[in-house]
Amino acid sequence: MPILKNIAAIAKGMSITFMEMFQPTTVENYPDGPGPLRGAKFQERYRGVHVLQRDENGLEKCVACFLCAANCPANCIYIEAAENTAENRISGAERYAKVYNIDYNRCIFCGYCVEACPTDAITHGHGFEIATFNATNLIYRKEQLLAARPAHLGANPVFNSAEVAGGAPAEVAPGE
């Protein structure tokens, strides 16, 4: 009876389809997931939006040496340096980056700036939701890139908190 054979063959084939219904789903839950990443799963090494780190006193690690800008293959980092003074101390060394812009229109997230940095000031975070309607929004300023101040801020009396509070990054920038 060929018809019975055919039915058996179809049942065998469909049984695989049926069993697949009980397998775990492979679809990423990205925009609907929990947490700040909204369900996106990244490796630890993922290179997202940069974060400018602070040292344990809340001072900026960046000393404006321009090595990251020199290493950038896309020329997307713009820095203006300024001298630290006793009243206005921003970084731990002599100079600090008064302006630190990264043009994410051009940045290719290669990580050469992170490798070049002698003070480990610039790092890659996991921020990835930076698509925008307006290309000028993609030029990120230092205030958007800086890491949030540590909880024990105030440990350093010369730390100029007024200026940083004026440009407090926290919510828009890196961690999200």
């Binding site: 004026g166 407090a168 919510e171 828009v172 920038a173």
Partner: peptide, 10 residues
């Protein structure tokens, strides 16, 4: 944050 700057996508 109260004194967040007026830039960024949001």
């Amino acid at each position: 944050m109260a004194n967040a700057l007026d830039f960024g996508p949001y």
